[in-house]
C-alpha cells in the first residue's frame, strides 16, 4: 500500500487527472463539431487568474479556483460569438491565434512577472500538509505527511474530474446534449429543428473555456509556478492529442487519452530501450500516434455505438 502510494506515483496520477480535465475541455467544444486550439489560452487565463489572486491578493483557494473558471468564461463569450461564425480550419487557426496572443501578452505583462511568470503560488499539497499538522492529524501507519498530503490533493483533483464527467454525461443525456449532437452531425438539419446553432456552439465553447481555466487554476496550485511558455502551441496540440487518440465521441475518450499518453510517458520516464530514454521520445510518439489514429481510427481509440434507448433510463 505504502509502496503504491509513493509520492511520485501520486503526483503522476494527479498530473494525469488534470490532463484528463484539459482533454475534456477540448471534447466539450468538439461535441458541437468545432475544433479549437484556443483552450491552451483559456488555461493560461485560468492559471494566471488563480496565481495572481493567490500571490497578489492572498485569496484563498476556494476563491481562486472558481475565479480561474469564471474569467476564461467571460472572455469566451464575446470571443465565441465573434469567432464561431468561422468553421473548420478557419476556426482552428483563429483559436490558435488566440492562444498565441494570450501568451505574447502575458510575456509582456510585467505585473505578472513577464516571461518568467509567477512563482511561489501557495501549493495545494503544502496547504493540506499544514492543515493536517495544525489539526494534529497523524498519517496512518507507514505514510508520511507528504504522502498523505499528495493523496488528498489527488483525491481532490479526482473529485473535480468526477464532477466534470458527471456534468458532461448528464448534459449529454438531455436537451442540451441532443442539440450538441445534432449540430455536430448536421448543422443545417439542426437549424431546421429549431435549434439556435450559434447559441449552442458558444455555450459549448464557454463550457470548454471554463473547464480549461479550472484545470489551469489547479495546475497553478499544484506546480507552485506558472509561466507563459507553458501555454503555447505545444500545449494546445497536447490537449488535442489526448482527445484525438483517446476518442472524441465519448467523454471517457479524453480520460483514456490522458491515462495512456501522460500516464505512460510519465510512468516510464526512466525506462530505457537500446540506451535511449523513452521520455526523450515522448513527443515523437505523440506525433506518430496522431498520424496513425487519424488515418486508421478517426473517432479515436474509444468509441461508442449510437446510444440505444427506447425509454429514458
Amino acid at each position: 500500500m505504502a509502496v503504491l502510494l509513493n509520492n511520485y506515483y501520486l503526483q503522476v496520477a494527479t498530473f494525469v487527472s488534470v490532463n484528463a480535465l484539459l482533454g475534456l475541455s477540448v471534447y466539450l467544444v468538439l461535441s458541437t463539431g468545432q475544433l479549437t486550439l484556443g483552450n491552451a489560452g483559456f488555461m493560461a487565463l485560468g492559471a494566471y487568474t488563480a496565481a495572481l489572486l493567490a500571490t497578489k491578493a492572498g485569496a484563498p483557494v476556494w476563491l481562486t479556483l472558481p475565479a480561474a473558471a469564471l474569467v476564461p468564461a467571460i472572455v469566451a463569450i464575446p470571443l465565441g460569438y465573434a469567432s464561431l461564425r468561422l468553421r473548420g480550419v478557419y476556426l482552428a487557426i483563429a483559436t490558435l491565434g488566440f492562444t498565441e496572443s494570450v501568451r505574447v501578452l502575458l510575456q509582456n505583462w510585467e505585473f505578472a512577472g513577464g516571461a518568467l511568470g509567477i512563482k511561489n503560488i501557495p501549493s495545494l499539497g503544502r496547504m493540506v500538509q499544514n492543515g493536517l499538522k495544525a489539526a494534529q492529524i497523524a498519517p496512518p501507519a507507514g505514510l508520511t505527511h507528504a504522502q498523505l498530503a499528495n493523496l488528498v490533493v489527488l483525491l481532490f483533483v479526482l473529485l473535480v474530474l468526477g464532477l466534470a464527467l458527471a456534468f458532461i454525461y448528464r448534459q449529454a443525456g438531455g436537451r442540451v446534449g441532443r442539440a450538441y449532437a445534432a449540430i455536430r452531425i448536421d448543422e443545417i438539419a439542426a437549424e431546421a429543428m429549431g435549434i439556435n446553432i450559434t447559441y449552442y456552439k458558444v455555450l459549448a465553447f464557454v463550457q470548454g473555456a471554463m473547464l480549461a481555466g479550472l484545470a489551469g487554476g489547479l495546475v497553478a496550485h499544484i506546480n507552485f509556478s506558472v509561466s507563459p511558455s507553458e501555454f503555447a502551441f505545444g500545449r494546445a496540440v497536447e490537449m488535442l492529442t489526448l482527445v484525438v487518440v483517446g476518442g472524441s465521441t465519448t467523454p471517457l475518450g479524453p480520460v483514456l487519452g490522458a491515462v495512456l499518453l501522460i500516464g505512460l510517458s510519465e510512468g516510464l520516464r526512466d525506462f530505457s530501450l537500446f540506451g535511449a530514454r523513452l521520455s526523450d521520445y515522448r513527443l515523437i510518439l505523440y506525433g506518430l500516434l496522431l498520424m496513425l489514429v487519424v488515418a486508421l481510427r478517426p473517432q479515436g481509440l474509444l468509441t461508442f455505438a449510437p446510444r440505444r434507448k427506447g425509454a429514458r433510463a
Partner: peptide, 19 residues
C-alpha cells in the same frame, strides 16, 4: 472526411520531424 483530419495528421508529422 473533413479537412480537419489532415490538419491533425500534419500536426502529428510536424511533431515527429521537429522532435
Amino acid at each position: 472526411g473533413t479537412n480537419l483530419s489532415p490538419l491533425i495528421s500534419t500536426i502529428g508529422l510536424g511533431m515527429v520531424i521537429q522532435n
